[in-house]
Amino acid sequence: MRVNSIEDEFSSRMLDDPGSGEAHMYCGAYGDRLGRSFHLSNPPVLHSQTRRGVRLAVTEVRIDQSGYGMTSPMGNDDAYLVCLNMRKQSTHELWCDGRSVCSTSYDGGTTYVLDLRRDPIAYISDPMHSLYFYMPRQAIGEASVELGKTRIIDLAIQPDQCFPDTIINSIGQTLLPIFNRATAAKQTLVDHLLQGLCTYMASTYGGSSERPEIVRGALAPWQQRQVTQMMRERVFEGISINEMAEACGLSAGALARGFKKSTGMSPHQWLLSHRVDLALELMADPDVSLAEIAFNTGFSDQSHFSRVFTQKMGVAPGAWRKSLANNKRVEAA
């Protein structure tokens, strides 16, 4: 049975996930995956990993025209994007969790940080040139332990903060000439710089430790990760609230209340938001109809898809797709 509306959540006791392929699409916001968020193909990317094998990466994103518009979601990931702005922007608008958190300008050489757990989306008005450093929280925790500190799990930087940092800027400037000209000999330098930046972020901007204060009634961090991972992994066969509650050692009611306390939304609302993220990627293909997108992302019909999409994005799917087509025409001109 498919859930058709938020109000149906507990009467049906069933959540079902988007179509297959999502795990691949949300496999790290770097390289081609990050490029799709900006409607770019194969942006330059450099890779490394920590000593324990956690992926690190930096992607160069360049947009040469003005009035580009909205990005697509960058994926729901337990990681940060540390953005180094190489070019001044007169307007910087950012949404997290569907709400506006920043509307300002920033200078070249400044940095801001995106928490990928908060579903960031940005509006781009001016030509842009930025480096996006992909930094999983697991890597930050590993770096903090190697520094002899309590394991850090967060960066204490709010999404509306845009600040100059000479270390981050210097690392970015050093990496720029290596993009598209990477060699095995240069990989050692890339490793040192990306791993060094991870250590620097942990030591300079590290926030809460691995023992955060638990909000009364909220899920424990491991329970929240468990529930969201289960919803991501299950496809059209669906997953019941009872099944997720059992995995967390809770009753169904306690799970629902705790999840909303932790995330600000019910499990079903979280799932609907996640489906819209997947739909935004599929909409980049003009040959796929909105009805097909609705079906392939798990919505009951196109009307349900349109209603949920408009609620989250503030514009109907057809208008969003039209803006994508206009962006492509401008880019090709």
Rank of each mutant, 00 (worst) to 15 (best):
M1K: 12
M1C: 12
R2Y: 07
V3K: 11
E7W: 14
D17H: 12
G19N: 11
G21C: 13
G21R: 12
G28K: 12
Y30R: 13
G31S: 03
D32S: 14
L34T: 08
H39S: 15
S41I: 03
P43S: 08
P44M: 03
L46R: 08
H47G: 00
V58I: 09
R62S: 15
R62I: 10
I63A: 15
D64Q: 14
S72A: 15
G75F: 07
N76Y: 04
D77I: 14
M86L: 15
K88L: 10
C96L: 05
D97C: 13
G98W: 01
G98F: 02
R99S: 14
S103R: 11
S103L: 11
S103C: 09
T111L: 07
Y112T: 05
L114K: 07
R118K: 15
P120S: 04
D126H: 04
D126C: 02
P127S: 03
F133A: 04
Y134L: 05
A139G: 02
E142D: 04
A143T: 01
S144D: 02
L147C: 03
G148T: 00
I152V: 01
I157Q: 00
P159C: 08
Q161H: 04
F163Q: 02
G172R: 08
A184C: 10
T188P: 05
D191Q: 08
H192T: 11
G196A: 07
T204W: 02
Y205E: 01
S208D: 03
S209M: 06
S209K: 08
R216E: 13
P221Y: 10
T228H: 09
E233F: 03
R234H: 07
F236D: 00
S240Q: 03
N242T: 09
A247S: 06
C248D: 04
G249K: 07
S251D: 06
G258P: 06
F259G: 08
P267L: 07
P267Y: 07
P267F: 06
L280I: 05
E281F: 13
L282A: 12
M283Q: 09
F295S: 13
T297R: 05
S303D: 07
H304Q: 13
H304V: 12
F305P: 09
F309R: 02
F309N: 03
Q311E: 10
A316G: 08
K322G: 03
K322M: 10
R329G: 01
A332N: 09
